[in-house]
Design a protein around this nucleic acid. Structure first.
Lengths: 143, 143
DNA sequence: GCTCGTCAGTTGCGAAACGCAACCCTCTGG
DNA sequence: CCAGAGGGTTGCGTTTCGCAACTGACGAGC
């Protein structure tokens, strides 16, 4: 993995979700935590920041605010398709932590919903029909 | 992808590398930018912060400081194996940005170093011997 | 019909992190 | 011997964050 220039989709992505809390809010959204107070208690984030981060995520179409109770108005924040597309990133971070941060057994594993066996996250070359390790990756200008 | 409790390898990982700059420093390290001044110019980060982040990354064994010139002493910061293991996370963020942030052609693509064809990042179930989309993932307590 | 509790926020203030510019030191080249 | 590059450190003002208190609309219990 070498070479390249202004590879700024990473920078752009991080501008949206790259602060201390947003990733954790998204992790919780994946874990089924959708309501303001649940998020606040689970994360220990300041309430004003949670308000702010949720609004930002909604503005960018990563979460959708949807009313689950009319009177009194109560809202849930759920992942959109765009939000669900972030799961590979969350998984990659989790796997790195599991491997490199002390702590023995990872508390959670990701499994295939059809067979229940653990999943692996890999790079695959469809041309050679084989999986590729991080060392076998090169970057190239697209055109 | 549902359920689960204190899944904190993500939180732990983000505590190390989850601030505004560290991810970008690592991205640059993957791109072949290894020296203090190169990083400072490329990122526009404040010099004191860069010093601080680099030291933290070295302390955690993600980068290694290695002297490339004895007199005067000059140093480079290079990824360790632990650092290289973060590439799936970087790739996932880049791919998300390429897909969801306006901007047409991604400036860089990742290709297989053996054949030069683009790579895909996927989940695979070795048990069923098939690839799995984000929607086909479930999480489960490990034991 | 008054109090208690829940959910979803907003406001205000002190503390920590950040951004910027200036400075330092060791060399190397002209 | 002066300029410039590389690799930082120091100091100070501004932003952001963390925490706690307050609001406000309900609903449940008595």
């Amino acid at each position: 993995m070498a070479g390249g220039q202004a590879d700024s989709s990473i920078a752009g992505t991080l501008e949206l979700i790259g602060d201390r809390w947003t990733f954790l809010i998204l992790r919780d959204a994946f874990r089924g935590i959708h309501r303001f107070d649940e998020l606040q208690h689970d994360l220990g984030i300041a309430r004003n920041l949670l308000t702010d981060r949720l609004h930002k995520l909604v503005d960018h179409g990563i979460l959708a605010k949807h009313q689950y109770c009319a009177h009194p108005p109560r809202y849930e924040y759920r992942l959109t398709a765009k939000g669900i597309d972030l799961s590979p990133a969350l998984v990659a971070l989790k796997r790195w932590g599991d491997k490199h941060l002390a702590g023995g057994e990872p508390p959670i594993v990701f499994v295939h919903d059809q067979c229940g066996e653990p999943l692996d996250q890999t790079f695959v070359c469809w041309h050679c029909d084989q999986t590729v390790t991080p060392g076998g990756i090169r970057s190239r200008a697209s055109r």
